Amino acid sequence: MPDTPARTALRWSHAGLNCRDLDATEAFYRTWFGFERARAVELGEDRIVFLRNGDAYLELFTSHADPGPAAGGDGPQQPGSIRHLAFQTDDLQAFLDRAGEAVPISLGPLEFDEFIPGWRTVWVTDPDGVVVEVSQGYRDEQPVHPPHGH
């Protein structure tokens, strides 16, 4: 068996989002999800903005491409595409009350008590149509089992 390189510790870095209106997308994630601007890089007429919430980062890119079809529901189903971004909250109803009609709901809220008592989720869309899940009550199985073969 050939030698394998030593494992390098990896940690999550960020998700990159293409934006029609970078300012509107930044405001959405700052207002509804608690992100703050960590850095902005000016690229002539365009820019890249990094948003941070704790250890989670979003990298926002100005995009001039034609938007694809709206996903809706819990996100696009095509292989090779990101289905949705997801956030946890302790109080889904408080999020929904605060957001009111300012944040479009694409699906839900739904309850998943048959899997985990108290698990509730809603899917909303950002200004560019990216589906964002907001969930309350999800818990891992105990104990967490690694995938087979590891």
Score class of each variant (00 low, 15 high):
Ala71Phe: 09
Ala86Val: 06
Thr89Glu: 00
Leu60Pro: 00
Ala56Met: 10
Gln88Ser: 15
His84Glu: 08
Gly68Phe: 08
Gly72Met: 04
Phe95Cys: 01
Gln88Phe: 08
Asp66Pro: 03
Glu59Arg: 11
Ala70Tyr: 12
His84Pro: 06
Leu92Phe: 04
Phe50Thr: 09
Ala70Ile: 09
Phe95Ala: 01
Glu45His: 12
Glu45Ala: 14
Leu51Phe: 01
Gln78Cys: 02
Leu96Asn: 05
Phe95Arg: 06
Asp97Ile: 02
Asn53Trp: 01
Gln93Cys: 03
Asp66Ala: 14
Tyr57Gly: 00
Ala65Leu: 11
Arg47Phe: 10
Thr62Met: 07
Glu59Thr: 07
Ala56Arg: 08
Arg47Lys: 13
Glu45Ile: 02
Ala94Glu: 14
Asp46Tyr: 03
Asp74Leu: 08
Asp46Met: 06
Phe61Met: 12
Gln88Val: 09
Arg47Thr: 03
Leu96Ser: 04
Asp91Tyr: 08
Asp90Gln: 13
Gly54Arg: 10
Thr89Ser: 00
Gly44His: 05
Asp66Trp: 02
Gly68Val: 09
Ser63Asn: 11
Asp55Thr: 13
Leu96Pro: 01
Gln93Ser: 09
Leu58Pro: 10
Ile82Glu: 02
Ala86Asn: 07
Asp46Asn: 05
Leu58Lys: 00
Ser81Leu: 13
Phe50Asn: 01
Phe61Ser: 05
Leu92Gly: 07
Gln93Leu: 12
Arg47Gly: 04
Pro76Lys: 12
Pro79Tyr: 10
Tyr57Phe: 11
Pro76Cys: 05
Asp55Glu: 14
Ile82Pro: 01
Gln77Phe: 08
His84Met: 03
Leu60Glu: 00
Pro79Lys: 07
Ala56Ser: 08
Pro76Val: 14
Pro67Ile: 11
Leu96Asp: 08
Phe87Ser: 01
Val49Asp: 04
His84Ala: 05
Gly54Pro: 02
Arg52Glu: 15
Gln88Asn: 14
Gly75Trp: 13
His84Leu: 06
Asp97Pro: 06
Asp46Ser: 09
Asn53Ile: 00
Gln77Leu: 14
Phe95Val: 13
Gly80Glu: 02
Asp66Val: 12
Pro79Ile: 12
Gln93Asn: 15
Val49Lys: 03
Val49Asn: 05
Asp97Asn: 15
Ile82Lys: 02
His64Tyr: 07
Ile48Gln: 12
Ala71His: 09
Glu59Met: 09
Ala70Leu: 15
Gly72Asp: 04
Arg52Ala: 14
Leu51His: 01
Ala71Met: 03
Gly80Lys: 04
Ile48Glu: 09
Gln88Cys: 03
Pro67Trp: 03
Ile82Asp: 00
Asp90Gly: 15
